[in-house]
Structure formats: C-alpha cells, structure tokens
Amino acid sequence: MLATQIHSYQFEFRAYQRPFRQPLKTSQGLWNVRTGILLRLTDETGQVGFGEIAPLAWFGSETFEQTLVFCRQLPSEITAEHISAIPSTLPACQFGLESAWLALNLNNVAAKIRNPKSEIPYSALLPTGPDAVEAWRSLWQQGFYTFKWKVGVAAVQEELEILQTLCQSLPPQARLRLDANAGLTLETAIAYLQACDQLGIEFLEQPLPVNQFQNMLALSQQYSTPLALDESVATLAQLKTCYAQGWRGIFVIKPAIAGFPSQLRQFCQTHQIDAVFSSVFETAIGRDIGLSLAAELTSSDRAAGFGVTHWFSDSWDQLSDFEQLWNSL
C-alpha cells in the first residue's frame, strides 16, 4: 500500500462545519450540517499534501466524534506506518490520511481546487418532493445532464406522481436516477421498479435495507431497470462481501468512506465492476481524489455523483487552492 521507506511528516488537522443551504432530506431524516476534518501533511522539504476525513455515520462509517478522538491521539509527526495501521473500523480516517500521503508522494492534483478531470460528467442532486420538477432547469443550464432524485421520503403514490411529472418535464437527452437510501419495503420497491421500467430510469439505488441483500439480488433479475447498491457497499469490506455473494449490478462507491484509496483501486481494477463514484458532501480536498479515482476506474459512461456543491451557501468551492481552504478555518 504505502512505501516502506521511512519518512516522517508533520501532521495537522482542523475541524470544519458546513451548513447546507437547505436541509438535505432522505428516508433516514434531515441533515443540516456537514462536519468533517481537513488534514495537512508536511514533509522534510516543506512540501504539503492535503486530505479530508468526511465521516457519514448513518451510512456506515465511523462517527465524527470518533474521527476527532483518532486525530487527537496521533503524534505531531507521523510516518507511513501510522497510516497503514489505521483499523478498518475507521474507513473515513483511512481515506483521509492516505489521500494526504498520496497527494504528497505521488504528485496527485492536490494544489488545485479544480480537478483536471473536468471531462468527467457529474449527476446533480435534485431537492426532494415537487421542487425537483423545476429545480433541474437551472442545473441543466449549468451543464448537468444526469440528475438524482431521492425517493422514499413521502408517500409512495405522491412520489410516483411527481416522478411522472418530472420525467415529462426533462429533455429527452437527460438521464434520471433514483436513490431510496434503503427506505423502501419490498412492496414499494416493486411499485417503483414497475414505474422505472416504463419511464426509462437509469437505475434505482439501494431500494431496500442492507439486511435484505437477497431480495435486492432477486429484484435485480426481475426488472429491466438496473439496481445499484449503495449503503450495502459503504466500505471496501462490504463491497467485497456483496461481490462474493454474487452482485454484478451497479456499485455506488463513496470513496471518502470506503477506506484506503489504494486498496479500493486494486479491487476495482481486479474485478472490473460497474462502479459509480459518488460524493458524501466533502469539500474540494476530498472530492479531488474521489474524482481522480472515478476518472481512472469508471468503465461506463455513467456520470459521477459529485454534482452537490449547489447545496452549500459558502464560497469554499470558489477558492483557488487548497491552502486557501485550509486557512479559511
């Protein structure tokens, strides 16, 4: 994973809070503020590498409090061995520290806030409910052609009616994917899939809870609309388990909580899975390596799920480099 040659790095971290422009509503409830930690490693020559820990506890990662405890117990000078020793119970910490190390040692694009892989298409996250019917228009003008809409938030029949209206309003070139955040029952999942087959939905993401893998596997073989696993494959260990159990549909991968980027890369290259890389509402620092992985490992023309910056009202995404973002905290 990491180089065996011993170098020490000055380790610093700063916690952040980013309020959403409006609360993000999912089947799991309301999300008001994104909290996370920015990391900076500095080598003996003064070169700097940035990383980010952006946990998502309700999705399957460690909690923000656990990441703070972890960072506070690290010494002010660390080595690659400290990073390699991070346990699998802290996948967001694994991602953050190895990302900083990779940025510093492999000359990743860590100096620019804008990722050079600008050719990667993004899907834009729409608001839940009827607001989606109009919200796509301004995003379309900004260059988004794939959209994600979260379902399982309101009554099924109400959402299906909105879905019909939304699909009728979208241009023929647009793609629409649905995300249930594990919030459907088997009965309601079937109702959505029947509608999806009629409407040409790109895919339905995680319709059922994680403990209903076999039902999702069966559904994936009964309808023409592809199913995607998301919560079921939050970490690399879960991804490996679902693959071993026979899942050959879409894997939605959130690299910021999946674990070590190097191990994720190795698995994807070995197994050639249908992967869609997606955001956990991290800052541009975490997004940088996520997009680098997406550019390298996405085998289809599916848009990456990183079109989420419009959900924040701050100006962080307009800063010119990572140093400015670090200094803004």
Rank of each mutant, 00 (worst) to 15 (best):
L139T: 10
L163N: 01
E98P: 10
Q164H: 14
I253Q: 00
D179V: 04
W58E: 14
Q157G: 07
T185D: 03
S279W: 08
T298R: 04
Q47E: 14
L204K: 01
A85R: 14
R14H: 12
L30P: 07
S313E: 15
S300Q: 15
D321E: 08
D274C: 13
A80P: 06
N108P: 05
I285K: 01
R18D: 08
A103L: 07
A85L: 14
G143A: 12
A180E: 01
A3P: 05
A195R: 13
A258V: 04
Q17C: 11
K240D: 04
R114P: 04
W136D: 00
Q157A: 08
Q269L: 15
Q221P: 02
L170E: 08
Q66W: 11
P261R: 04
S313L: 10
E296L: 11
L104M: 07
A57Y: 12
P261T: 06
Y243F: 13
I83H: 01
T235L: 04
T283R: 01
G200M: 09
Q269R: 15
L170M: 12
G286R: 00
Q198T: 14
T146K: 02
S76V: 12
G36P: 03
K148N: 11
A258W: 00
T42S: 10
L264W: 00
L68I: 14
W316Q: 08
E98A: 06
G29F: 09
M1P: 13
P172E: 09
F277A: 06
I253W: 00
T35Q: 14
G307I: 12
L293S: 03
I201Q: 04
L160C: 06
A304E: 08
P23S: 04
T185Q: 02
L293N: 03
A304C: 15
L41W: 05
T67I: 05
G249Y: 00
L166D: 04
K117E: 12
F277C: 07
T79H: 05
E52G: 03
V210E: 04
L102W: 00
T270M: 09
L97F: 03
S118I: 14
Q318L: 11
T225Q: 06
E323F: 05
R177E: 07
R137V: 10
F64V: 04
R18L: 13
N107H: 13
G46W: 09
L104H: 02
K240I: 15
L325M: 09
P23D: 11
T128Q: 06
L227I: 14
S118V: 13
F50S: 07
A294S: 05
L90P: 05
E205Q: 08
F312S: 10
D317N: 13
I289W: 02
A304M: 10
E81N: 10
L186I: 09
Q10A: 13
R114G: 10
Q194F: 05
A174H: 06
W31K: 09
L106M: 13
Q142N: 12
S292A: 14
A54F: 01
D317H: 13
